[in-house]
Amino acid sequence: MQHLTALLPRVTLKQALIVGGATTPLLAGGAGVLAILLYLMAAGGTATPAPEQPIAFDHSVHAGDAAIPCEFCHRGVGSQAAATVPSVEQCMFCHSVVKTDSPQIQLLQAHWDTNTPVNWARVHRVPDHVRFVHAPHIQAGVACETCHGDVASMEEVKQVRSLAMGDCQGCHRENSASLDCATCHK
């Protein structure tokens, strides 16, 4: 236990405890294990693999080649908490005529025809005890790619930042945004 924490100088016991509470009832013996996880999350950060999506939607085509603005599809981003994924109907605005012969678009067409929703795999997710609201970040002039990376060049979207507490805090600190716990924790 002691030698484990000694290996991880950047993570103090206090920081480990911070993450423990709500969702993981913390036992004293578990602190070290958690500390390792934390350390990996904080240090490793970048390499979350892209999840497999039900339809191979290519952001590099839409946001990159076609240069469609993010908020054209993610319509809630400027006004509310969730950026929101577009409805099948919205996809079909274009794809009832664009590239209808593509097998992936036919998958989409099938959802439209059978009136079934698409279950996209979630790429970015914050824990349940965190309240994240997109709108104030957009209003503060934070660019989408600051947190989401260069989506315009990604065929498959993956998480590029850790989005762990320290990550958020660093940015908040640099920009003199609120560091009050209650701003993000609910």
């Binding site: 405890l17 911070i18 993450v19 423990g20 509470g21 709500a22 969702t23 913390l26 824990p127 005890h129 009050d180 716990c181 209650a182 924790h185």
Partner: peptide, 19 residues
């Protein structure tokens, strides 16, 4: 886990609390 914020609230941060 409990602290006073700058709006006069006594805040309880649940994920910090160790009981």
């Amino acid at each position: 886990a409990t602290y006073h914020n700058n709006e006069g609230l006594n805040v309880q941060v649940y994920n910090r609390c160790i009981g």
